[in-house]
Design a protein around this nucleic acid. Structure first.
Lengths: 233, 233
DNA sequence: AAGTGGTCTAGACCACCTT
DNA sequence: AGGTGGTCTAGACCACTTG
């Protein structure tokens, strides 16, 4: 009695992955051609391709056109993070969300901001400082710069009622993104607004977006003590 | 004269994405069926499917079997991070890598560690504290627990010569992974080994792996001040 | 120059979910 | 119950890259 079930690409993926874990295919090894694997499994090459595509995205193998498929010899830990809108993040935890505009001004970009955008001359941008609260406690303090050339409409938005964060997400999609995580000590504004003791460790998310090559916004979001970011899966 | 070039799935993806950015398809909207889009573009449904697959992975749309494809109304920022082996990370920056074993012991797991693994009874695990150096300066201090049931071979490894980090990556693949980022203040051991002033902000990566449901290892890696983690793309 | 992965097509069937 | 996305097949051609 033979197995009548049709092979799916996940089956192929799992078997190949198992062999890599087994060291049947050891780090650095070259795997058989897709076509040979297809023959071994008795499926179409497309199915093998789909499986390999997944393994490649996971960072387990590397594929090159003429070079074939190789097991990566220095595996990396690859994790995907979803960074939601702050309001949504707070509400999903079942907390009450509030938002306060702290300051709104038009300023010349300092060097640090120019560097983030990769531009070489200072220009005037809208700068917005704001505080997100969860259950009436400070949650995230953000210091944001918005390029008025790509996003002039932001000038008409009432930022006392709606966060720039939220307006941008709903009205200004980006094509390129840069995200960085780091840690900093609470000091001055960040300590005051987050009601954190001076010197306490804060988690910082820095996010910069462009549309094409045109800057949209860059934000430094500083989270209150205890903040933790977890990978999705 | 008509365009003779064959349409590729990236073209379809780019056009659909443009329409989403355009608000031709607004947040929350349902997109036409794959087949209709295929007809509009004059390509096979498979090609549209490939494009949609990409948009779905990027977090721009959501697809459900009978429900069709919808533009996400609360877009999330999705970023993928590669966390390489520490040695490789240091060497790729062109720095000299060194490693020191600080302590090696067999201990009962405290509650915090049991929680990370999701186990309910304390067991004895190998605990390894070590320091990674870049150009002779402290770079990352790690405190690691290794489950001897899943990874007994670690007892035979000379951890004064090779980091547990590296041995595990090359010899013990995992099937499940949990990663968390946070910030903490330098204190006690972390301050001493990283040569960081007490109270300075440190970036912390917490990584836990399992094979099936069996714990392999959990590590708290504390980076020296100034450490920054950037998204791949 | 040739081998390998990448993609496209056309058609079929399946699986899931919403109505 | 029916519509939609998910997948599989078989064959073809293309594009990259390495020997």
């Amino acid at each position: 009695m033979t197995d009548q079930t049709r092979l799916s690409w996940t089956d192929v993926r799992d078997e190949i992955r198992a062999r890599i874990l087994n060291r049947t295919y050891a780090p650095g090894d070259r795997l058989p051609r897709d076509e040979d694997i297809a023959q071994e499994f008795g499926c179409a090459r497309t199915t093998v391709h789909r499986a390999m595509q997944d393994l490649s995205q996971t960072g387990l193998v590397e594929r090159k056109r003429r070079g074939g498929t190789h097991v990566l010899s220095d595996p990396v830990t690859r994790a995907t993070f979803d960074i939601p809108i702050t309001r949504r993040e707070v509400e999903q935890r079942g907390s009450k969300y509030d938002y306060q505009l702290i300051r709104r001004s038009v300023e010349l970009t300092p060097l640090t901001i120019m560097a983030r955008f990769g531009i070489t001359s200072a220009i005037k941008m809208l700068r917005v400082k704001a505080l997100h609260l969860a259950d009436n406690r400070p949650y995230i303090f953000e210091d944001r710069w918005i390029d008025l050339r790509s996003t002039p409409a932001i000038m008409e938005v009432d930022l006392t009622r709606q966060s720039a964060n939220e307006w941008l997400v709903h009205n200004k999609p980006y094509s390129r993104l840069d995200v960085r995580f780091s840690a900093m000590s609470a000091e001055g504004e960040s300590a005051r607004f987050l009601e954190a003791p001076e010197g306490s460790a804060l988690f910082v998310i820095e996010r910069t977006t462009w549309i094409g090559t045109a800057p949209i916004t860059t934000v430094q979001a500083i989270a209150a003590p205890g903040y933790q970011l977890a990978a999705q899966s």
